[in-house]
Design a protein around this nucleic acid. Structure first.
Lengths: 224, 224
DNA sequence: TGCCGTAATATGGTATACCATCATACAGTA
DNA sequence: TACTGTATGATGGTATACCATATTACGGCA
């Protein structure tokens, strides 16, 4: 009875909601809907082959996530990002990531170090290949390990949500900054600092990295 | 035509959703539903006099806020708070509040100082009266001014959401700690530090305050 | 008496129907 | 021709209907 064969089977009903949520979030984050664009429910339903119930519940969720805004009396639109908000998001990310890196450095173990190095490796390969999506994914994975190593799951959720809101900026900052060396170099600094348990250095590397990203983002948002 | 009488009238449709959202959030935060308690939709509908559509959309929103969890194949329950999560929440709050106080101190103006002092006054009166709800409200208002003065609206939203998740703890920590002097004293320290533009002192006061709250919270959650 | 199977019930998931409101377009009139 | 009023369509808000699943309760059988 205690054999793994007879352990509780993992039966996750995977509702339509979950699928649609995932798809719409991805669509917004990847820029398939422009900021400010109206999300008209019925066409979305046709497109996804589901009922309005599902789409509307999804919209409520994404609204709470900050990816969608509701214009009262009008309807949902894709959230628009101001520079004022973006700036704050970068600042908050810096706090969260710094704290996570510090704690992660404190908790460092050989296994954790190995995972970090592997993630860094993947990241560098993705950067070398130059394809945006895998780069973003690898970057996310790298940070996920840091937050995980720190035991900062709450902060991770917040950071992820914030990242969703600045996704458009991230896509561009990654493809410009990251490809031109400093980005991956920073990542390597961060990795090495954490692995060697040097919290101060990690903090500095993260600060450097994010202030670069912030600057690039500012240029982008200002010119628009 | 430029007279205020003929300016655009402020017509906000106030949907049932908004009302129900407010009510249910309040109900959860104020502890009218116990953590882990199932939120059965139909009874809620009867109670509130609305359709399941409205209740379900509200649940989706509160789920994203972290106040409600969905057990797959079961349904929604009031989110349960572990000490591991609570601890992180206090840490994140400390970062956000410290940053806000620092920035607020940097931006201090006579008007802002006046608003802060007034809020502190109200807070002290509420504490003197000893009624929990006004105390919570006054505390919230005090912090709101700090975040507002810092221009940290994004951080404020995050802090508010985190506060929702630890509301039960806050209610208790406020009624124990705050009434016994240190709480209000800390608030006064924070206020004075900001008003005099002393960011370092504000940071120290906030740290002191939150580490107290964190300790009280830990005792509470451990014993449960 | 205890266990198993089936029926009834509770409950969430999904689809659809209906209504109110707002925008738009068209037609009629001055 | 210009303006106004009405009709039509688009769209979100809300309610309801229906289905699938999971739990519970009860009754029959060994």
């Amino acid at each position: 009875m205690t054999s793994p064969i007879m352990s509780k089977i993992n039966h996750q009903p995977q509702t339509l909601r979950d699928i649609v949520q995932e798809r719409m979030r991805e669509a917004i984050i990847s820029g398939q809907f422009a900021p400010g664009e109206r999300l008209v429910e019925r066409p979305l339903c046709d497109q996804l082959g589901v009922s309005r119930t599902v789409v509307r519940e999804t919209i409520r969720y994404l609204e709470a996530e900050g990816l969608v805004e509701i214009l009262p009396g009008k309807g949902p639109i894709v959230a628009q990002l101001t520079w004022a908000d973006a700036r704050q998001i970068y600042d908050i990310r810096q706090m969260l990531e710094t704290a996570a890196a510090t704690e992660c450095a404190r908790n460092i173990t050989p296994q954790l170090a190995e995972r970090l190095r592997a993630a860094l490796q993947s990241l560098q390969e993705a950067v070398a290949a130059g394809v945006p999506t895998p780069m973003l994914r690898a970057t996310t994975e790298f940070y996920r390990i840091i937050f995980d190593g720190a035991g900062h799951n709450v902060a991770w959720e917040i950071a992820q949500r914030l990242n969703g809101r600045i996704s458009r900026l991230r896509a561009v900052t990654l493809s410009t900054a990251e490809r031109q060396k400093p980005g991956p170099a920073h990542m390597q600094d961060i990795c090495e600092a954490i692995v060697s348990g040097d919290a101060k250095a990690a903090q500095a590397a993260i600060e450097q990295h994010l202030s670069d990203a912030k600057q690039t983002a500012e240029r982008l948002l200002q010119e628009k």
